[in-house]
Amino acid sequence: MNKLWDKLLIGLCCCALTLTAGTSAANIAALLVAVIFSVISQARPNSPASYAATLLYGVFCLFSGEALMLSPLVLYDAFCTKFYPAMLLTAAGTAINITSLSENIFPLFAVMLVSLTLSQRTSLNAKLSKTLISTRDDSKELTMQLVEKNKAMQRNQDYEIYLATLKERNRIAREIHDNVGHMLTRSILQLGALSVINKDDTVGGALTDLSDTLNTAMTSIRSSVHDLHDDSIALKPAVEDCVRPLRDRFSVSCDYDFSERMSRDIKLCFIGIVKEALSNTAKHSNGDSIKILIREHPALYQLSIADNGSCPENITESGMGLSNMRERAASVNGNINFMSDSRGFRIFLSVPKQKLTKQEI
């Protein structure tokens, strides 16, 4: 938009300069040619058409004093792009026609100076605008990166807190199981022995009530310890522990997207299958890459393990490894598939979300 206003100002100055020389047909024709060439340069900036129009008008200036009077309008684009051939042709035309422009030579130089000044100012503004836009974009990008880094730091902190919580829960569950649970079990056994040797009927009812109370307490403690132990199994660190010995030989990538509300049985199933799959990969695969994916969907959990080693398309499940993985998948009502081709071997497991029976500790 600045260029349009600059050209309008330069055009008015050129028209005023031309009118001082009269309104002959040559002057009007030169004005039309200058406007047309200036429009071409404006419509297609920095294009071959723009350079050709500017250069051709410079040639006209060699033979026409009328065209030279309007040269600042066309030279504006040459000044902006530093197109020196057009400038040299205009200078040569000025030298050739200097005698015919004796009265208007200084006004012409003044308009050329205005054209040069405006072009430099506009070019500088354009550069500053680009720099401003680039700086603003860089600032936004850095801000977004900082936001992402802050989120990642918060996630890492939350995860460390979660791991610390799991360790503490595991410790509490172990303490209850090893100490309180054993003492209650011993008390129940002693109470049972005392009930057997007791001959007093008045005490027998009290012993029975006490035994029921202790059994209820034992059941409650078992349930609490079981719940604590369910949460104490962290799937991601367990998978990382399985992967760590293979990182010297394989390029391993792990993609996790699941909540820690996953049940203990499914966690144990996934850990067992990952261990078995990585063991088979280390023994039989000639590849160098392993990809592990664990995802949670609204209705199911998904586990995918793939390597890029070459293997036959037909898989014989005669070994214990694949059979064990099928048994683990069946224990949680999951569906497991093994796929192999020239691109590698892949294990795909899907487990529906459902309420599984909790095992006794």
Rank of each mutant, 00 (worst) to 15 (best):
N2R: 15
W5P: 02
L12M: 10
A16S: 07
T18H: 15
G22Y: 02
N27F: 09
I28T: 03
S38F: 11
A43H: 11
R44P: 00
S47R: 10
L62E: 04
A67H: 10
S71A: 14
L75A: 10
T81F: 13
Y84F: 15
I98R: 09
S100T: 09
I105K: 04
F109R: 09
F109G: 08
S123W: 09
S123Y: 09
N125T: 10
L128V: 12
S129G: 03
S134I: 11
E141K: 15
E141M: 14
L142D: 08
M144K: 14
L146T: 06
E148P: 08
K151D: 04
Q157E: 10
E160D: 03
K167D: 08
R171G: 02
D178L: 12
H182F: 12
H182C: 05
T185G: 09
L191A: 10
V196F: 15
N198Y: 14
T208P: 01
D212I: 11
T213W: 13
M218I: 06
T219G: 08
T219H: 10
T219I: 05
H226Q: 02
D227S: 13
S232W: 06
S232A: 08
L235A: 00
D241P: 05
V252C: 11
C254M: 04
S259K: 04
L268W: 05
L268E: 02
L268M: 06
E276L: 05
S279H: 14
N280G: 04
N286E: 02
D288F: 15
E296Y: 11
E296L: 12
N308L: 06
S310P: 01
S310H: 14
E313A: 09
N314Q: 15
N314M: 14
I315L: 12
G319N: 04
M320H: 13
M320L: 15
S323Y: 14
S323A: 14
E327G: 09
R328S: 02
A330L: 09
G334P: 07
G334A: 06
I336F: 13
N337G: 11
M339P: 00
I347D: 01
L349Y: 11
P352S: 00
E360A: 11
